[in-house]
Simulated scan of single mutants.
Amino acid sequence: MKINIIGGSGFIGTRLSNILIGKNLPFTIIDKVVGFSFPERTRKADIRSLEDLRRSIDRDAVLINLAAEHRDDVSPPSLYDAVNVQGARNLCEIATETAVKKIIFTSSVAVYGFAPLGTDEAGAILPFNDYGRTKWEAEEIYKRWQSEDPKNRTLVIIRPTVVFGERNRGNVFNLLRQIALGKFVMVGDGFNRKSMAYVENVAAFLEHSLVFKPGIHIYNYSDKPDFTMNSLITHVNNLLGRPSKIKFRLPFFLGLLVGSGFDLVAKFTGKKFPISAIRVKKFCSNSVYESSIKTTGFIPPVSLIEAIERTVNFEFIEGNKNDQVFYSE
């Protein structure tokens, strides 16, 4: 089995590569960036370029597509369509040329938008931003590719919730850093619940899905149990040796006003800030998802509570300052 990991130099791809090495599975990373961890296994290519892909993808390989534009503040916004949608078209065209029979695609729970509690894979598709919209459009492109030869082609679509872990510099890290610095202010009442996904578990499920048979397989991914923001902050404070009580709380409407103010400054200065209106909305919303992953026999290798402890210890207690980091949402 030959495995091509498109966008494999990033956060999830690096963890997945380590798992594949541990199981002696051959793989090649195809990415526009040659990463720090596996330069000798990387072919430089941009998913927006058919010619790049044509030169890079192996015949009859399993394709795992992790490439995406995913931040809240992508500029210009047309990059969402160029990478997520046109990239999917390009990948399917080359897959057909090279007799590829299996594609594993990391989508996102963003396709559901602000979803009702407990949304599973049958949930209504109501994306509220370009990221969620373009992930859904990409899913539809991959489904059309699979439908052209349904008895022989396998499509796996994985929709993770927010992915966190050591070395990531996304929203979860920013939250943990604010707590570690003693600068955290709770916005809202903190009773909203959040589904989270530890990077090691997501990567393990990607590897698990390599054996899936022809057909379309769609799974949400989140690790359980779901924390309320209050319980998450309290646990992190305890890990850091801080008082567990949350001292400062800001009403939601004031937090949204502050976020909108940062948006206005960003618009005129071009500077990006860790606070924005959409991030305040996401922080204060419920995002709890259910999944049928258990039906596949998959068991996450790391519990969620251990994953949080690993991340806090690595980033804020052990003092790992010089390690490679990955920037994402």
Rank of each mutant, 00 (worst) to 15 (best):
M1S: 15
N4V: 11
I5R: 05
G10E: 04
G10H: 03
R15M: 03
R15N: 13
S17W: 04
L20W: 01
K23I: 11
T28A: 02
V34S: 10
F36H: 10
P39R: 06
R48T: 14
R48S: 05
S49C: 09
R54F: 14
R54H: 12
R54C: 03
A61S: 13
N65A: 02
L66D: 04
A67V: 12
A68H: 03
R71Q: 10
V74N: 01
D81R: 15
A82C: 08
A82Y: 08
N84S: 04
Q86P: 00
A88F: 11
N90G: 02
N90C: 05
A95V: 10
T96E: 15
E97R: 02
T98L: 13
I104C: 07
S107A: 02
F114Q: 04
A115D: 05
A122E: 12
A124T: 10
I125Q: 04
L126Q: 12
F128Y: 11
E137S: 06
E140G: 00
Y142F: 15
R144C: 07
E148M: 12
P150Q: 11
P150A: 11
N152S: 08
L155Q: 03
T161W: 02
T161R: 01
V162Q: 06
V163A: 01
G165W: 00
G170M: 03
V172G: 01
N174S: 12
G182Q: 06
F184T: 14
V185H: 04
M186K: 14
M186S: 06
G188S: 06
N192L: 11
M196W: 14
M196N: 06
V202R: 02
V202G: 01
A203Q: 06
A204W: 07
F205D: 05
K213N: 09
Y219R: 02
N220H: 12
Y221A: 05
P225F: 15
L232T: 10
N238P: 00
L239N: 02
L239Y: 01
I246W: 03
I246L: 09
L250Q: 06
P251L: 09
L254Y: 06
L256E: 11
L264C: 13
A266F: 15
A266E: 13
A266M: 12
K267Y: 15
K267V: 01
F273Y: 15
A277G: 05
V280M: 13
K281A: 09
S285Q: 01
S285L: 01
S287N: 08
S291Q: 13
S292H: 15
S292Q: 12
I299D: 14
I299T: 14
P300F: 12
V302M: 06
A307L: 09
I308Y: 01
R310M: 13
F316E: 05
E318S: 13
N320R: 12
K321T: 08
N322H: 11
S328P: 01
